[in-house]
Design a protein around this nucleic acid. Sequence first.
DNA 1: TATCCTCAACTGGTCGGACCACCCGACAAG
DNA 2: CTTGTCGGGTGGTCCGACCAGTTGAGGATA
Lengths: 234, 234
Amino acid sequence: MVFERVRKLKVAEQVVGAIRDAIIRGHYKEGDPLPSERELATQFGVNRSSIREAMLRLETWGLVHIRQGGATRVRDALQGAGLHVLPYLVAPGDRLDTGLLDDILSIRVMFLAWTAERAAATATPEDVAALEELLESMRRASDAERIQTIDFEFFERLVAVGRNRVLTLFTNVLREIYGNNGAHLLFLYTQVPFDLSAHEQAVAAIAAGDSAGAAAAMRAYGERGQKAHRSHGE
Amino acid sequence: MVFERVRKLKVAEQVVGAIRDAIIRGHYKEGDPLPSERELATQFGVNRSSIREAMLRLETWGLVHIRQGGATRVRDALQGAGLHVLPYLVAPGDRLDTGLLDDILSIRVMFLAWTAERAAATATPEDVAALEELLESMRRASDAERIQTIDFEFFERLVAVGRNRVLTLFTNVLREIYGNNGAHLLFLYTQVPFDLSAHEQAVAAIAAGDSAGAAAAMRAYGERGQKAHRSHGE
DNA sequence: TATCCTCAACTGGTCGGACCACCCGACAAG
DNA sequence: CTTGTCGGGTGGTCCGACCAGTTGAGGATA
């Protein structure tokens, strides 16, 4: 596998991107009316159907509010929107403002700790073996990017072990964020050799069924990341 | 205000509901192809545009996967879908299967504890006053439904106090779930007088800036709910 | 003057029918 | 067995028309 799949952008997807960017960059503020579908169609040089498709996507993401008869208006994204907008709020390539990254890392600590705690309660010997295997490949990995990938696999594995369907849904969202913006979090892994002690402690605790221990280990790991960000940010 | 606003269902919304239900009820399983848009249009007796709109919604929710040239197929909702499908997975009025409720309550504990912990770190005197006011109205409330409403307000307040934008996004999702399915969780509040001690401890800890104490109090409260469900379920 | 009603000119929602781009499976050619 | 072709089906886009709510300006009314 050398070449990636070519990404074909539908017309509607390009329109979505353009409007989303315009909103994020502040051309349209909260509550502002967007141009009518017919006008956007001529502006973009596409058919109204495509504009409609774009608007529908933006609405299900919670970025705009559509109402028959009235204009389609921008909605305050962080107020009314669902979680799923996050991946789209942070456009790939954009800089992430520091405050938001803070918030994300804080949430990360919560998920790491909780996931480990749940996993310790429900792990089978096979689960533990799989986790140890991932540890081993992290030890062997030599560059930050690879470690990051494996670490996220480790996390996903932890979630799967926890066997909580709702938590799995959350992870899917996190994966989207991560997949689009992994570069912003790469600094968490640039220290090589990567300090694996927390992971090792966590796996040991999980193997022993020690929920509190597993949670503490992963929590410590997460907080180390927060600290790294603070000193790294200035 | 006695009467609620009449809810007008767009054609596409009805189609979305019908297809969603068909998927949830198992008429279409993971990976199954849905009928073509043209066929669905004649079956539902509507235009293809409406079917397309419905499909787009289902796709952004992660329930189906659309690909040009090939058939639109059902996607395993709990595998590939984002969090935002949860409100739609549990249709209002449906029974909630016990396992899922277990999972939800488990997540609830995590959020309660974490939210309280964060709040303790960032609360201002005004925040504390607002929380105490909510406590007071819970004391005065006499029926379970009212208590439930206030308790969720309390939680939202806690989130706001934490001042974490990402956590706020999560709450928006939870609110949707809660709003549509509060009845399933009503059993958490049927004990009257409602035991407020955990809330009181949490607020006290928040006022004192004691993160660990606040987390422990709300965690205990959440775990009491889990226990109630287990004994209530059989 | 102040209030209400009416109506025209928007907006989004639905319709139907056409054609394009793409995928797949059948089948022929090598 | 592999490769190439092609036809029929699927979603993607386009067009133009009409339906259904919303809004606001201007006139009728008190």
